[in-house]
Nucleic acid binder design. Structure first.
Lengths: 254, 254
DNA sequence: CGCATCCTTGATGTCAATCAATCTTAGTGG
DNA sequence: CCACTAAGATTGATTGACATCAAGGATGCG
């Protein structure tokens, strides 16, 4: 199956707030900035639990995951990162990173050193607002994720995951309906707090119902409305309520 | 059953970073500060989803919960707040609050207006560091919570919840082994993503095993080690592994 | 090619949600 | 003060969603 789709997670003119800030406020030291760029490969770690905090990283290309480790050595993925995302904010507290960040593919990052952050915060109101808003936004996302983990069924979790990914790619100027998953099924399962077999089964179920088309890492969303419905009302369990409730589109349908 | 225990969640000389910051950096406008204090009662809302963001609140006494609402009207509690906690950081993004904060008992809060925040950030490095660290710490807590919701069994969730509460009260100068729960069973269940009946059953089970003593809102932890073990290795399901793994105490035992 | 990683699919077991009934506590008004 | 009500909490019985166990197929790299 050779479908034409865009290469994923390439460098793009990152329109993230933080990125804009740096460019706007510090046009002079672009050379210095470029020096702080670094390239990593799949399975490389950007930093690990306990590592000294140097500053915030901005992901320029590729993708990554962050996870923390429980006492018994189990890992739990808390977030996937895509170009433009800030990575490593968790390190301000105690100057140590609380989780590990590992790349899912060849990626490049740019470091904003802590000293830079402090000076930018005081000198640039754009940067300050950007940082506060980014953090604030992250907190809101975390809340949504907690709700998802705590109350959604496996099918709802996966539907939400796909819709979120879709939005994520759309925001980055890529197709929101056809993309490559840069993470394994194991990663997805871990992230959503379910068994890998369940992920597989629900993907199969979605495919059978013509909601998605999935072939290993390649994924295409065929029926956004169905996914949306699935998040609002679990398809399998309560078919009776699906008629009484109007479909509320949380996500734009492309 | 009339046991002597401290009144909970009273005003205390809040030692939170943010609090210290304000006092240290703005000793002049204490009068003004006091004007921004407000008192609320049980079931009152500090703000609701969509409300305009005015600034960050610091909880001075009492307790509160924050929750967001899904499309079908279901609520999900994302956090409980105790004196010294910052409330409302989620509002920076878009100047609107993304969740509702509601009080669990009579409480008082102090507002740090957005304009104040901006000026404090630029003028006071103590405040700046405090804010960044507090946010960073919150992110780390969120990660831990996600891990809990995603991978822990109900018993582990509840054990962790109790231990976290214990630490929370200890940090605030109250007893970490004997305290009042200011939230209902329903709130606890909602927060941990489980059924209220399960909460009740596990409380009963803990009590039977002499791990805790619980009488409605009153709770006393008798066996910290057991709770710790429970978090590390689920007591019921895998008794065979409990011998091979040494007990690693995440929480200090009081 | 051969090995390791990743993914899929079926059979079985179990944890916890749900349903249902009862009891307790707290709040209200006569 | 006590009846009355509503909210909160407990306990038991049943069911279902999902994890686990087990086996096999696909993919990709050295």
């Amino acid at each position: 199956m050779k479908t034409s789709y865009q290469a994923q997670n390439d460098y793009y003119n990152a329109a993230s707030q933080i990125d804009i800030c740096i460019v706007n406020t510090n046009p002079s030291n672009n050379a210095q900035k470029r020096n702080s760029h670094r390239v990593f490969h799949r399975r490389d770690s950007l930093f690990s639990v306990g590592d000294h905090f140097e500053g915030i990283y901005v992901l320029r290309s590729g993708s990554a995951k962050s996870f923390n480790t429980s006492r018994d050595g189990e890992e739990h993925i808390t977030k996937f990162y895509y170009p433009g995302d800030m990575v490593g904010i968790d390190g301000f507290h105690g100057h140590k990173h609380k989780q590990t960040v590992r790349f899912l593919e060849t990626s490049s990052v740019c470091l904003i050193k802590e000293s830079e952050i402090h000076s930018l915060i005081t000198t640039s109101s754009v940067f300050r607002d950007g940082l506060l808003q980014a953090m604030s936004h992250t907190l809101a996302c975390n809340s949504a994720m907690m709700m998802c983990l705590g109350t959604y069924s496996s099918e709802q979790k996966l539907a939400m995951f796909l819709l979120d990914l879709s939005v994520c790619f759309s925001e980055r100027g890529l197709s929101g309906s056809e993309f490559m998953l840069s993470m394994t099924r194991t990663d997805i399962a871990n992230y959503l707090g379910m068994a890998i077999e369940t992920v597989s089964r629900i993907f199969a179920s979605f495919q059978q119902r013509n909601i998605i088309e999935v072939q290993l890492r390649y994924l295409s969303i065929l029926d956004f409305a169905a996914l949306n419905r699935s998040v609002a009302i679990d398809i399998c369990t309560k078919p009776n309520t699906s008629l009484s409730n109007p479909i509320q589109a949380k996500y734009a349908m492309n």
